[in-house]
Amino acid sequence: MRVALMVTCVNDAMFPETGKAVVRLLRRLGVDVEFPAAQTCCAQPMVNTGYLDEAVPVVRTFVDAFAGYDAVVTPSGSCAGSARHQHGLVARRAGDPGLAAAVAETSPKVYELSEFLVDVLGVVDVGAYFPHRVTYHPTCHSLRMLGVGDRPRRLLENVRGLRLVDLPEAEQCCGFGGTFAVKNADTSVAMGADKARHVRETGAEVLVAGDNSCLMHVGGVLSRQQAGVRVVHLAEILAATEADAGGPSGHPQVGLAGEGAA
């Protein structure tokens, strides 16, 4: 099985540690994941803002980059949803039957990470270790567009040392919403503030989700509040093992993407 990592533009540019975590995790599970270097973005920012013409070349790049793979894995419910549910729309807009055929070929092979682990690899215990109190936010597109259901929960429940606490009003949107976060910043922040309040109510140390864009938003609110809660992508928790322990505070310090504390 040829498996490609679709890292997503946000993770590529902003959260490379998440991509690295997926690579470590999949290799540990015996999957030799490839990174097609021609990939860029799923085109969702253009599509969801209404720029369909601008999305056409991006979708073209997408299907070219991932042609020939048996599975395309991505650590993002939102981008998986975009590839599976919006690329057809863009191809219709382009009026290009060749593109439509390529989309029809690629779209169904795109899996969000928890779907790939549970449905394709058939594992729920990935051998992870993460000794922290964690609460999980099911992101809207993973929940409602993809229907990942309880897959992320089942994966988290099998992580050694992890204490999973329920998030009140978990299924309410965090307020990110792509360009909504800046076009309607006030409403977006109001939603994010409520999500942050619910996160604080859990007493969790870590908020986990399957989309870094949503985590960037809620994490940004929590950080501004000095709430003492950090946000970590699901992939980074699932990639963490006891061997990784021994960071600065004796704990695996995942979620320190980029420059770190340096």
Binding site: F15, V189, G220, G258
Partner: peptide, 10 residues
């Protein structure tokens, strides 16, 4: 205005 923004990685 209300959210911190992670710095882009090196």
């Amino acid at each position: 205005g209300a959210r911190d923004l992670p710095a882009p990685p090196r």
